[in-house]
Computed example of a mutant assay.
Amino acid sequence: MPESILVVEDDHKIMRFIRANLIASNYTVFSAHDGVEALNLYEKHLPDLILMDLMLPKLTGLQCVEKIRQYSNVPIIILTAKGSSQDVIQGLELGADDYIVKPFDINELIARIKAVLRRSNSEVTVVEPTINIGSLYIHLNNYKVLFNNEKISLTPTEFNLLVELAKNPECVLTHEHLLSHIWGQDYINETHYLRVCIARLRKKIPINEDEKGFIQTIPTVGYKMIG
């Protein structure tokens, strides 16, 4: 069954261009031209990925991302003409998985879509069914994370990053290692992806700095999980 993508874009010419290329790449495509329509279509069709413009009528793309992240971890790629670091980081902090700045190359866009879907669908190699570090329990078979017996909702990227750190407690994992293993070789210099994702994990799993499971920053090198 083809994977499905919800494209949210208010420029009809850009929408037609993206839609035609995605259909040619064997994706099922749903189209929304404003933020309210985007939320309604997402709830109706539950697509595998959302391609979200930022500057939309009725609700902005960032408002849509924030609302969707309240109940869903669907992969989201931001498509925007606003390419400043602040705009990009704000989108990532709200839970977007990637971003593309307009004008864009359609082949790069499709490659990014494939990469995000691949991360979302990737299976963690299960050696032990559960990783336990302090009050943190990571159940690999069903992608469930518990902290202090409370369920923590993570995006696929957040989950994969947490597992990579938890499988290697007390080991310093470099920026390059984490970016290549979680995002792929094309992202090896995109350290802001890693920095924002680590910050989201720390916020969702509020472990004290001196407790097992805390993700420690190793300046200029990488990160390690206290074991």
Rank of each mutant, 00 (worst) to 15 (best):
G134L: 00
N121V: 03
V116K: 00
T125N: 12
I68V: 14
K151T: 14
T157P: 09
R112C: 04
T174R: 02
D87P: 06
T155S: 03
N107W: 10
T60F: 05
A96H: 11
Y99Q: 04
N73A: 14
I113F: 03
A96G: 10
V145M: 02
E93W: 08
T155L: 01
A111S: 01
I131P: 04
N73M: 15
N73W: 11
A96W: 11
L94T: 10
R119M: 07
E93R: 14
T130H: 04
A81Y: 11
V163R: 06
I100S: 00
L109V: 09
L62R: 11
I78T: 14
M55I: 13
I113S: 02
L49Y: 07
N40W: 11
L173E: 00
L59Y: 06
T174G: 06
L146P: 06
T174W: 06
L162Y: 03
E176Y: 13
L62E: 12
R118I: 03
L49D: 05
S153R: 10
E123H: 09
L46G: 02
Y143S: 14
L162I: 03
L161H: 08
L154M: 05
M52F: 09
K144G: 01
K82S: 15
L154P: 03
S120L: 01
Y143K: 15
K144S: 05
L94F: 12
T155H: 00
V74N: 10
E164R: 11
P57R: 04
A96N: 09
N73D: 15
R69E: 13
S122G: 06
Q86T: 15
K151W: 11
I68D: 09
T60P: 11
Y137M: 10
P57L: 05
I89N: 10
I106E: 07
G61E: 05
I100D: 00
H139A: 07
Y143R: 15
T80Y: 11
V145N: 03
Y143N: 14
L162A: 02
D87M: 08
S84Q: 15
D53N: 05
N142M: 07
I78V: 15
Y137W: 09
V124E: 05
G83T: 10
L136K: 00
H181D: 12
F159N: 08
N107L: 12
D105N: 14
K102P: 07
L51Y: 04
M55P: 13
D48W: 09
V124L: 03
S120E: 02
E158Y: 01
P103T: 01
A115I: 00
E158F: 03
P103L: 02
C64T: 15
E164V: 06
H45P: 08
I138A: 01
S153Y: 11
I68A: 08
I113L: 01
M55E: 15
I77L: 14
G95N: 08
Q86N: 13
V127H: 06
I113K: 05
H177D: 12
L154C: 04
A81R: 13
L146D: 05
I133K: 00
L165V: 03
A111M: 02
L41P: 05
S84R: 14
H181T: 15
S120T: 01
N148W: 10
E93T: 14
G134F: 00
G134S: 00
L49S: 07
V124I: 08
